[in-house]
Design a protein around this nucleic acid. Structure first.
Lengths: 211, 211
DNA sequence: TAGATTGTTAATCGATTAACAATC
DNA sequence: TAGATTGTTAATCGATTAACAATC
């Protein structure tokens, strides 16, 4: 008798496919289309039609038999389901090349991630701004985040510092960590962890290239 | 009677975990350790010991019963298995904020990815260099790549251009595409495709934050 | 009505987990 | 020898695929 009955938890692989559908129907919309069927999506992006149907069943949308889905509806429902219409505030720890690029990437804000500050220990960048976003000394985070209240911590520090910095961010009130380091950090129950290691993806690509 | 008998194909989830083990044992090495057991890794990075054992069984390494693995051996074997000791040449299509960051990230070269050129259509950046890597006009790619022979194409263009640009890169001889756009591109049989959409990872994180 | 599509239910497939044998 | 560890084999779990009923 839990509320799991009402919202079946979507499996992660399915969740990761939804942005593909969104991206494709946005393209269709820009071409003036108004209706799309799952079989049509299936052919274009190389995912089986039954998988698309199954994935969309987790989302609150209903298509019309023999017709398909209304493109505007589908875009709205997917964007809202994926959290792209809300604003989530974030800080970036480690303003090296990747961290700085994330500060500069205005695309992220369109997808609901608003970076409000960077933190680093390098005097050459502390107290400067990148793309109008201030960079502070890491020591100041806990004090500053009492007001700023960033919800998400983006982790782009060297791997050796990853675990320590993540714990520091959590002490400062962060509820989720987006980990770009190759290091597998551990977080307490209740903290969300998203690993995005470019090196792991490189490894998969290299392996498939040789096999 | 195929050679699949000799090299069991490693599942992708397992392949993505191997860099975690590598990262952790490199940390141990930097702390002066010489031996590590899978149970020790398990505790520290929150992966079950049996999964680590299973994952390592795909790799050509053998541990010593009652002792564990030699750290230097494990690092060498993992780095070589993951392709980090080879040099793979790459070009980056789309030198926006993310593309430029990849050109600037010297970390990638340490993991076996050597970016030899950027390509874009924006006159403001074409024929300049970023971090000593030249940026050319996209039109010149096919001609230039006859000599440069980049093996991997990194795709950081706007989603609407993703499919078209990927086909162009493949015509130019690229064997694998590292796709950073949220668009699900289709590639011919035999071309390796690695999707790394930051937005998909954002979506997973947002979903888990709310749930 | 016939046919195309949605969307659910059942079957299959593959990865993870658990149990345990082998080893030093 | 006793105990800790590797590494394999079997059981479980969950996602994908296939079949098909419902619908317009």
């Amino acid at each position: 008798m839990s509320d799991l009955i009402y919202s079946a938890k979507i499996p992660e692989p399915a969740l990761r496919r939804l942005p593909w559908y969104l991206s494709y129907v946005k393209l269709l919309k820009s071409q003036g289309e108004t209706i799309v069927s799952s079989t049509q999506i299936a052919k274009k992006i190389d995912v089986s039609a039954s998988q698309i149907a199954k994935d969309l069943s987790y989302v609150d949308i209903s298509g019309k038999t023999r017709v398909g889905y209304d493109i505007d509806d589908l875009i709205n429902v997917l964007e809202s389901f994926l959290g792209f219409t809300n604003t989530h505030t974030a800080v970036v720890f480690g303003v090296g090349s990747l961290g700085a690029a994330l500060l500069s990437d205005s695309g992220l804000e369109q997808f609901g991630l608003k970076i409000i500050a960077g933190y680093d220990v390098n005097p050459a960048i502390v107290n400067h701004a990148i793309h109008h976003i201030p960079v502070f000394h890491s020591n100041e985070f806990i004090e500053r985040n009492k007001e700023m209240k960033a919800e998400i911590g983006v982790l782009t520090v060297p791997p050796g510092a990853a675990q320590e910095v993540s714990e520091y961010m959590i002490r400062g009130g962060v509820k989720a960590i987006w980990n770009f380091t190759p290091f597998r950090i551990r977080v307490p129950e209740g903290t969300v962890l998203q690993n995005t290691s470019l090196y792991a993806h490189l490894a998969v690509m290299f392996n498939r290239l040789n096999g």
